[in-house]
């Protein structure tokens, strides 16, 4: 598959996430859209990781070089990164949901329009 397809797919998912953030008032949905955006980015990272891995192995094979461990490892950083993003996202969700619960407990709503005290 051309990498462009993955780029466009990821961008589309990301933009859908943004549209969600912009159009919804429910804090939980907004939060979910953020997760969606994170996943779009993850997808792109994995695609790039795979692309680099493939390119490295192919180049080595074309030049009849021995395929070493280092070449096989090319691009693993991207996937490790995705792993860490997931870790952070999990932590973020924990705290974020706690905050939303707290907010619900205080104003009995999850509507972000009630949270307009940023201007004070």
């Amino acid at each position: 598959m051309p990498i462009t397809h993955y780029i466009i797919l990821s961008l589309a998912l990301f933009s859908i996430g943004i549209v969600g953030v912009l159009t919804r008032r429910n804090a939980i949905i907004i939060f979910m859209c953020i997760e969606l955006m994170l996943n779009a980015v993850n997808l792109l990272l994995v695609a790039f990781s795979k692309m680099h891995n493939y390119a490295a192995i192919k180049a080595a094979a074309d030049q009849k070089l021995p395929i070493t461990e280092a070449i096989l490892n090319t691009g693993s950083e991207g996937q490790i990164f995705v792993f860490f993003i997931m870790v952070v996202a999990a932590a973020e969700v924990t705290v974020g949901l706690a905050i939303i619960v707290m907010m619900y407990r205080n104003i009995h709503s999850v509507d972000v329009n009630f949270l307009n005290r940023l201007k004070h």
Binding site: I8, V46, S76
Partner: peptide, 28 residues
């Protein structure tokens, strides 16, 4: 975003090649 990224390495493709096991749990 699409307009600015659509020409990025358009030649690059992703195919399964022999030994492309970078995403396997052992290696990661």
């Amino acid at each position: 975003l699409v307009a600015s990224l659509k020409n990025v390495e358009s030649a690059s493709t992703i195919e399964d090649v022999k030994g492309g096991d970078v995403g396997f749990i052992k290696r990661l």
